[in-house]
């Protein structure tokens, strides 16, 4: 009895510590899903047996002119996490909202060299690199972290629909001339899709902001 009385505080501390450790060890780390089509391939294990491995959908090689009229490819995003979207500069509907939100995110991660941004224009007629440059400057985000790219209709539209899973199209009945979805697509350093967020929805944009660090932490391991 005397012993317990004397060591009561130490005991309480020990119990608390044990409880905390127990609780934290149970918490599973949040991991982002991997989207897109999957395939399998047969691989040879180190012990000579055969196994099956998953092949995830990845963003294929691309080459586009950026706002400085310089060709950029996947190499530009090597080892980095990036957020891709599709827009056009004369768009008055969802693009301003998407880019208002994306700009806010870019400011939050401006000191992190592992986070980049890639906006593709779908207006292959008007949005030449010089127009994109002006747009980037006016949006206030002109720099190497956020690339605005211009490419031929076929390559950009195919990339959008087949690889980033974002619908884009020319629509002559629309006032702006084009229709597209406002997804901000999160790509990991292995070129896989790890998230798609509606860039016009504040809640989903907030989720994107929370998910970027999760993805970055995963790459650290």
């Amino acid at each position: 009895m005397n012993f317990i009385m004397r060591h009561q505080s130490t005991l309480t501390c020990a119990i608390l510590l044990a409880a905390t450790l127990f609780a934290s060890s149970c918490k599973e780390e949040r991991k982002l899903p991997i989207y897109g089509l999957r395939d399998t391939k047969t691989v040879k294990n180190s012990d000579g047996t055969q196994g099956v491995d998953t092949v995830y959908q990845t963003i294929p090689a691309f080459k586009f002119l950026n706002q400085d009229s310089v060709y950029i490819t996947n190499d530009h995003f090597k080892g980095k996490v990036y957020i891709a979207d599709f827009f056009f500069t004369s768009c008055t509907s969802i693009c301003p909202i998407m880019h208002r939100n994306l700009k806010m995110i870019s400011e939050k991660f401006k000191d992190n060299p592992d986070v980049m941004f890639l906006s593709h224009t779908i207006d292959f007629k008007y949005d030449t690199p010089s127009v994109l440059k002006k747009y980037a400057e006016k949006l206030g985000v002109d720099g190497p972290k956020w690339q605005f790219v211009y490419g031929p209709r076929d390559s950009v539209y195919t990339l959008a629909e087949k690889s980033y899973l974002v619908a884009v199209n020319v629509d002559s009945t629309n006032r702006d001339g084009y229709v597209h979805q406002g997804f901000l697509v999160l790509i990991d350093k292995d070129r896989r899709i790890r998230g798609a967020y509606d860039g016009t929805n504040p809640e989903q944009v907030a989720q994107l902001e929370k998910d970027i660090p999760v993805l970055l932490a995963e790459d650290k391991k």
Binding site: T92, P96, H99, R100, K103, Y135, E137, K138, L139, G140
Partner: peptide, 15 residues
Amino acid sequence: QNCHGAKGEGLGTLT
């Protein structure tokens, strides 16, 4: 609001 913002704050020097 798309361009001029919820608080009328505009967007960069675009709007």
